[in-house]
Amino acid sequence: MFDKRWVQKPEVKNIISLSWGSSRDGNSGSLLDKIADCHRALFKWKRGADCNSKMRLTRLKEQIDLEGSKRRPNKQRLKDLKWELAQAYRDEEIYWKERSKESWLRHGDRNTKYFHGSVQKKRARNNISALVNSNGAEQISEGSKGEIAVDYFRKLFTSSKPVHATELLTDMVPRVTENMNRELTKPVSRDEIRKAAFGIQSNKTPGADGMTGQFFESYWDNVGEQVIREVNGFFESGQLPHEWNFAQICLLPKKINPTRMTYLNP
């Protein structure tokens, strides 16, 4: 998942700019292709970069202790190390705030422990330890619980293919006037597309690729043109790329310790 802390790193913008502009076999590539290229490039960079703030905290504390224990410590180096340590603490707090999904707390001293506790509490509350299948048998393995969920949603979302569906609209009075229809079907502007993209919450991901709203907002100069082109392409052709319709379903319990799919909200 795109990490909000990366926005502060200038090398990330260069990585996105290069990977977004790269071509595939001479073709410009689709939006999803470019996002996948960015995903791979960022993953490769992350493996070699010092991105783990917890490890940075440990390393910087050791360096500060080592420098401070010298008979004649370098004051400038100590100052630089302490500034890096403060930045590492900020990065750690940003990371855990993003994981906790807490939005009401805006300012304050270090809240890393609070966010960490919030993550643990949510994990415990949302944990599904067992599910009962259609035969009434309780299943505890991850594979069996997954099969119960898939079977439930397959039945829920499969159409019954009614023959006379149009009869449902009988006697309904039209409410959309010709003027309203023209306004609704006019071409979508660039500003409307940009506003919609920027309307995604910074920690939300519109797709399964892990690229959050923060990614599109922070690097719109690089990615915006492709987004606008493909959204307009959909409105002109009426065809939605198959991959755009992929979704991840997160199950939220309606009650404590849910054991049936009906006790969960998708």
Rank of each mutant, 00 (worst) to 15 (best):
I249G: 02
T205G: 05
W45Y: 13
T205S: 12
Q201I: 01
K13C: 06
A165W: 14
G207F: 03
S189M: 01
V132G: 08
V7T: 15
K46W: 07
N52Y: 14
L57D: 02
R194H: 08
Y152G: 01
T170M: 03
K70S: 05
V132E: 15
L31P: 02
G48W: 15
R154S: 10
L251Q: 03
D37C: 13
K13V: 07
K44G: 05
K145P: 05
Q201P: 03
L85V: 02
F216E: 04
R125K: 11
E192N: 11
S23K: 15
D109C: 10
D37Y: 09
N181K: 12
A137Y: 03
N181D: 09
S100T: 03
Q8W: 03
A49G: 04
A36V: 09
K4C: 08
I193Q: 06
A41K: 02
F157Q: 01
I200E: 02
Y89R: 15
I128M: 09
D3H: 02
T212I: 10
E92M: 04
D3A: 06
S141P: 02
I35M: 14
K122P: 10
E67Q: 08
Q139M: 05
N126M: 04
E98T: 06
H107D: 09
G238D: 06
P73C: 12
K44R: 06
K13H: 00
F2Q: 03
I200G: 02
N52W: 14
Q214T: 04
N135M: 11
Q120V: 08
V176R: 08
I64V: 14
H116G: 02
F216Y: 15
S160F: 05
D221R: 13
G68K: 02
D91W: 07
K145Q: 15
P162R: 01
Q239E: 12
G48K: 15
G29K: 05
K122F: 15
N126G: 05
E178T: 11
K9S: 01
I249A: 04
R90L: 14
H107M: 03
G108I: 12
S30Q: 07
S19L: 07
L264F: 07
G143C: 05
R59K: 00
F157L: 14
R194V: 07
I15R: 09
W45G: 12
F43K: 07
Q87F: 11
E98L: 01
E67I: 00
K255T: 07
A196K: 03
N265W: 13
F115G: 03
S17R: 15
D25W: 00
V163S: 12
K122G: 14
A197R: 00
S100E: 05
D25A: 00
S189N: 09
S160Q: 15
K4M: 09
F246D: 11
F235C: 13
N257P: 01
T158M: 04
D33T: 11
A197S: 11
G26R: 12
R106T: 02
T262E: 12
D221V: 06
Q120D: 01
T177P: 13
R110M: 05
W96A: 07
D80G: 01
K122E: 14
K79D: 13
R154T: 12
D50M: 08
Q120Y: 08
N52G: 08
E98W: 06
N133I: 05
D151S: 13
P253W: 02
T185W: 11
Y95Q: 11
D171C: 04
P162V: 03
D221I: 06
N74V: 12
E84M: 13
N257Y: 06
T166I: 02
Q63V: 08
